[in-house]
Design a protein around this nucleic acid. Sequence first.
RNA 1: GCCACCGUGGCUUAGCGGUAUAGCACCUCAUUGGUAAUGAGGAGGUCGCGAGUUCAAUUCUCGCCGGUGGCUCCA
Length: 675
Amino acid sequence: MALIQVTLPDGTINEYAPGITCAEVITDALGRKHGCLAARIDGAECDLSRELEQDCSVEGILTQSDEGMYILRHSAAHLLAQAVMSLYPDAKPTIGPAIDRGFYYDFAMKSISESDLKPIQKKMQELARKNFTVERIEMSEPELKELFSSNPYKLEIIEQRIEEGSGSTIYKQDDWSDLCLGPHVPNTSRLMNVKLTSISSAYWRGDQNREQLVRIYGIVEPSKEALRATITRLEEAKKRDHRKLGKDLQLFHIDEEVGQGLILWTPRGAILRQELQDFISHHLRRQGYSQVFTPHVGKLDLYRTSGHFPYYQDSQYPPLVERDLMKKLADEGCTCGELSNLMELGEIDGYMLKPMNCPHHVKIYASQMRSYRDLPLRLAEFGTVYRWEQSGEISGMTRVRGFTQDDAHLFVTEDQIASEVLGCIELVQIIFEKLGMTDYRVRVGLRDADSDKYVGSPDRWDKAEDACRAAAESLGVNWSEEPGEAAFYGPKIDFVVKDVIGREWQLGTVQVDYNLPERFELEYKGSDGEIHRPVMIHRAPFGSMERFCGVLIEHFAGKFPTWLTPTQCHIITISEKHKGYAHEVASLLRDNNIRVEIDDGDDTIGKKIRTHRKMQPAYMVILGDGEAEGRTVSLRARNGDQVSGIPLDQFLKDLRSEIDQKVAQPNLAVTEAEE
RNA sequence: GCCACCGUGGCUUAGCGGUAUAGCACCUCAUUGGUAAUGAGGAGGUCGCGAGUUCAAUUCUCGCCGGUGGCUCCA
């Protein structure tokens, strides 16, 4: 029989008899401890057990690789399904993919609770221990339909995914099998280190109108150590959760009597927010923005013109209707449904909590005759908007019903779009850089070429889209084009970051808009003496102050740079004798605009340090006999570093400069200690 | 909005058909202590809200409100 030639990743070509498996080839090349759990034949992923029949290239997939982890997770999902089926024979498995942080499997079954996860997990480990071989079996369509005849979900997949007359594969371990393309680990013993993490629900095919399924989430790692490390990492991440830290550090409060998703900024949080606003305001002035203020409500008619009221009713607070009018309508026997209709028709007017700031800003633009010399006109406002988010979606500071955007609207000529979009991007870059937020991605939302829902001419879109692409490119970070993700009124650039539990949040956004100027018939007089229509750019580099601060709390784990820290210094006295000096130091610092808290109580020094540590001041300033006599201070940094005998004026000077320069992290005590 | 789970003084939390733990925080007294908890005492809760079952509900049932994890949605 003719031998086949197998090319290995290093370029070596070995000859084998046909029918040799990938596993054997890899073992031959790398030895028995090759650490692979699957393979690639000519680039296509497959099982280690796959047999080779002709010349090809073979490459092992290491467990540690991204692809390897993906396969491990996918196999763990299968194991989960096997375990669930053995414990709940009535359950019907649907789909169970690997995801970035683990895996899940959706079942049609009676609901189970968190406490049921333990036995399932135990069963999984028991099955894993039995070291079943995971076997790939090719089947024809009729065979598949026969095998999964009692599972309508699998049948639906077979109907939709598998071409008439062709077949697919199942993966079988012990007496259990699942419809799947693979590849999978060679045997279940690879899946010992699993942990089921949570239980929730999902709709079949993600469709709200279809069956609700039970979804079980889990994580899996190649080794016990890796699993333990992952669990520890998840627990550590949870400690950074802004909802927990926000409470511990007294940054904000949400009160159910005030309302869901409505943030109360407490004094310490207000400082954080104010510092950020001041920081960005400085850059706005530099870039030629004009500050404006507008009210929190506007007439319904305004939002009829802008299109917000008719199009986005479901995500708005209900309109406010005048009390007398309400009473009159009620007396006339008008029902709620009729009232709603009247409002929609524009028969009666009312006010709306503003869902966006743009209509107000548009009106400021339109309040004067504008000439091309006025453009670009950049109107900025920290504007608070209200949106009726679904109750189940509200979360901490990241998804709320009332929030303040660091909003601005740029009214520009067609030719100014590119440079102004770039200016907006620069602003985002300045902010992210100063705060050390390098872990973000950028989405450029482009129009869907096949759709006609977009306003504005194709060539204008092309230009605007090019401007967005170029701007995104200029950032030097990961960015992706997302066709079909543009707003109907123009392309956009979104900045997306992850929170501690891996959820992505959109922060900043830059959007080009041809629509609103049209709707409000905005004009300017060009240099040619003709009337032209401006283009608008909406942009919010932080996105919302609430969401941004939420993400920022997690980013810094509550250990903010000195300029942002709500209380920069906590002054702590050793004993009663030092009260006088402590207050003197406090006054001096306060006079120099440094935020100080003083503890001259009668706790021991150890106790005071323990107490104040929790609030994460940039520095603890310890004052006792030595300091009072020599007019110096002792500093204690967050990490425990200490330094004594710093002359008071020098400390003030250094601290002031650290704040003014917005240094990334407090480093006075650290620098001194290292010398 | 949907599904599951959860809701005990400011915070963390024990408990359970007979109105309730403990720690931290708070207040008082003593202590004046040099870098992660000094000691003693005290006060503080209609056990999320409303109904129902029961001789009796914080505990069981239902409804509502709120939170958590997902799903769906997200201008």
